[in-house]
Simulated scan of single mutants.
Amino acid sequence: MMGSDMQAKSGFLDHQFLIAMPGMQDERFARSVIYLCAHSEEGAMGIIINQLQELDFSDLLIQLGILDEKQAIRLPTKARDLQICNGGPVDRSRGFVLHSDDYMVESTMPVAGEICLTATVDILRAISAGRGPRHALMALGYSGWGAGQLEQEIAENGWLTCPANIDLLFDGDIDNKYDRILALIGVNPTHLSTQAGHA
């Protein structure tokens, strides 16, 4: 189900992918896929999952003082390969980790099903020591909308929505996520119109 049909059933779009339409006016969100962590009458919060940062995870750990350069060389492969996404334009100095529910600390917020969000340095230490969650996606910054703003953008044909797919959320093929998620819901990007329809 897409857009307003989904909203009519549940009221909110938690645990959905937002997929930017080709005519997206805001360059920061062009060809972006956002995982919606929370959506309510007060607004919405999500993480862009397909825009990479140039910063390596090991460099981030060194910057934060979690590891020194010698320790960073000995990072477990899984930690060394963890990519960092640009989660959105809000609070870009703050880190957020979307992850599987096999890792929980006091600050962990369950999002939906098997997915949680942790925004404290504890999870970075756990990942660097090989004690982190089975699946993780790290982002700097997030995407946020005020009350009614996201609904308006969807109504104006800015976004497609679909239920989130956990495999696509956590897989490492960041560059092709946009096209693969569209293919998953049976949408050919060349057939998408940038015009909103009104009956």
Score class of each variant (00 low, 15 high):
S4R: 06
D5G: 05
M6P: 00
K9P: 00
Q16E: 12
F17A: 05
I19K: 10
G23A: 14
Q25T: 13
E27S: 14
E27M: 10
R28C: 01
A30Y: 09
A30I: 08
R31H: 13
R31F: 06
R31Q: 14
Y35C: 00
L36Y: 12
H39M: 02
Q51V: 09
Q53S: 14
L55I: 12
D59R: 07
L60E: 01
Q63I: 01
G65T: 11
G65W: 11
L67V: 14
A72Q: 01
K78R: 06
G88M: 04
S93Y: 05
R94Q: 09
F96W: 05
L98W: 04
S100W: 04
D102C: 10
Y103E: 07
S107Y: 04
M109K: 10
M109D: 04
M109Y: 12
V111T: 05
V111W: 08
E114G: 05
T118R: 00
I123Y: 04
G130E: 05
G130K: 11
R134F: 03
H135G: 00
A136R: 09
A147K: 10
G148P: 00
L150R: 14
A155M: 13
A155D: 11
E156T: 09
D167H: 13
N176S: 07
K177Y: 08
Y178G: 10
L182C: 02
L192V: 06
S193E: 06
T194W: 00
H198A: 12
